[in-house]
Design a protein around this nucleic acid. Sequence first.
DNA 1: GACGCATGTCGAG
DNA 2: TCGACCTGCGTCT
Length: 273
Amino acid sequence: MPEGHTTHRLAAVHRDMFRGRPVTATSPQGRFDDGAGRVDGRVLDEAEAHGKHLLLRFDDDQVLHVHLGIYGRYALGPPPAPAPTGAVRLRLTGSAGYADLRGPNACELLGPGEVKALRDRLGPDPLRADADPEAAWRRISRSRTSMAVLLMDQTVVAGPGNIYRAEVLFRAGIDPSLPGRELARDQWDAVWADLVTLMADGVRVGRIDTVRPEHTPEAMGRPPRVDDHGGEVYVYRRAGQPCLVCSTEVMTRQLAARNLFWCSTCQGRGASS
DNA sequence: GACGCATGTCGAG
DNA sequence: TCGACCTGCGTCT
């Protein structure tokens, strides 16, 4: 689940469920006993997301920093909370419900200075009102690194992961191997605008759908299709299957230890407008 | 029950 | 560039 839209959803859930009232915090698994003890009984003042980082600020200015990483997930529900099962690192309980955190990359308490340091190294987040896409453009337009790598670099853009990376490049018709410095300014503007739109949709719907209405199987006269990650996408994890637009086989390769997917026809050099 | 896999990040070499 | 981290799930035995 965890790309930036997931974190923003989680921030909203935490606001709705816990803000303004004392929470109960425990670590059923035991690996966060110390931190849970320090949060237990505090009042949640604010919950926000920056990229894939979830920040929960309590009334004593401690900030709980959660990063789901690749395995982490939340289980949320109304009261009463069931007996915890599996490896629950942190359980927050309030009058409106509970939140169980399993398998996070990071679950730690930070002071104000540490929070600032964390945020200072993150690029603009398309889901945040204060995001400055110019900061990302300055990095991209000077870089020899490929767009595929730049879009996964959280110090360039904070929030997109492997799915949004693949889908946004497809939708813009950009070859993933194109160096940042060869990207045209209007292409970047289009990519950023698309990230803003797609990720906001992701927050609203709770999954990643990127296929335009005119390319859905129904519109193309093909049988209905369900992608195995739970959303409708053009290329992500569709290697060997026909491109939804041109029917060329979708390509895949390992790049910086991650799977990259693209259509060599729709995303050839010069394929974009 | 073993194994492989994943929407992520960091640090060693 | 590669392994470690870390958890649940699907697939294969």
